[in-house]
């Protein structure tokens, strides 16, 4: 039982890592039905920005919480700028074209960004300092969960609630929902669709940057390729939960995390990916739109 609990908690921690990235995926998809493959790279760039800024601030002997605050804020700004620009350059010109074009463009952006960081920064693995506080009261339970995992879990929950509220109750949220339902109609009633989509990308990229800082702090290392592996898993999680749905992305991530963790614990880690994809296939067979996905009606 104790073993099960440990595996369950490690699955939860893993799930919240996936969820941090999956939330951004699902949000962009929910509004413009585009799978933004570059999302994983934005997450990586967020992490790198924090690494560089953190090194700079630390060398100026700032207190850790200030370093964390500044690095996170600045990497959010930097990553959002990337997200905004990518949308403008790579996706907007393809709006209204076949959906496959934008998808291929997204894959292209992802490769360009990876190689940009590879060339402009380094091909090596870099140590990532921990910006996050250690809770001493958690020390007795360290076999179960550590401070960083708890923080990631907490941040995921906060972001999920924040996004849900944003979309349900604010003006921009209403505009997002309108754009998601029918872009032309939204334009006709006076919604500035371009602005709404830009804001969506900015929010999505900010989430990726937060994820980058937290997850890299947890892993203790960073390299230009980390966005790819994490991005694929987060994408699977988002599809599992019903892509486009915010609670769905979180639920899908947890299911993925638990499956992998329990599969590893009770069967073998050799088949970790196999468990993930088997569960994806099973759920898609039963519910083709994912667990919390809305059934898409054919528009006529």
């Amino acid at each position: 039982m104790e073993y099960f609990l440990k595996l369950f908690l490690s699955g939860t921690a893993k799930g919240s890592i996936y969820a941090l990235i999956a939330l951004g995926y699902t949000m962009v998809y929910g509004i413009i039905q585009l799978i933004n493959f570059a999302h994983g790279e934005i997450y990586m760039i967020g992490g790198f920005t924090a690494l560089i800024l953190g090194g700079f601030f630390f060398s100026n002997s700032m207190p850790v919480w200030l370093v964390l605050l500044f690095s996170v804020l600045l990497s959010i700004i930097y990553a959002s700028a990337f997200g905004y620009t990518i949308e403008k350059i790579a996706y907007r010109p393809l709006r209204g074209k076949p959906r496959l074009s934008a998808l291929i463009s997204a894959i292209g952006v992802s490769i360009v960004l990876q190689n940009f960081v590879l060339l402009a920064q380094t091909e090596k693995f870099m140590p990532f300092p921990s910006y996050l506080p250690e809770f001493s009261w958690l020390q007795p339970y360290k076999e179960y969960i550590n401070s960083t995992q708890l923080i990631i879990l907490g941040v995921t929950a906060i972001i999920m609630v924040f996004l849900t509220l944003l979309i349900k109750f604010t003006r921009i949220g209403k505009a997002m929902r309108a754009t998601a339902q029918d872009m032309h109609m939204a334009q006709l009633v006076g919604v500035d669709v371009n602005q709404v989509i830009s804001v969506t990308f900015i929010i999505g990229s900010s989430l990726a940057a937060i994820g980058g800082v937290l997850i890299c702090s947890y892993m203790g290392q960073i390299n230009y390729y980390i966005g790819f592996v994490a991005g694929i898993k987060a994408f699977v999680a988002a599809v599992l939960g019903g892509i486009g749905s915010i609670p769905g992305a979180v639920l899908g991530s947890f299911i993925l995390g638990w499956t992998e963790s329990l599969g590893t614990g009770y069967i073998s880690s050799d088949y970790e990916d196999a468990f993930a994809f088997v569960i994806l296939i099973v759920i898609l067979l039963i519910k083709p739109d994912g667990i919390l996905g809305r059934t898409q009606r054919q528009k006529v």
Binding site: S10, A13, I17, I215, E260
Partner: peptide, 10 residues
């Protein structure tokens, strides 16, 4: 992979 805590538990 970002996390190996499951296998560490094992």
């Amino acid at each position: 992979a970002p996390d190996y805590s499951a296998v560490v538990n094992k």
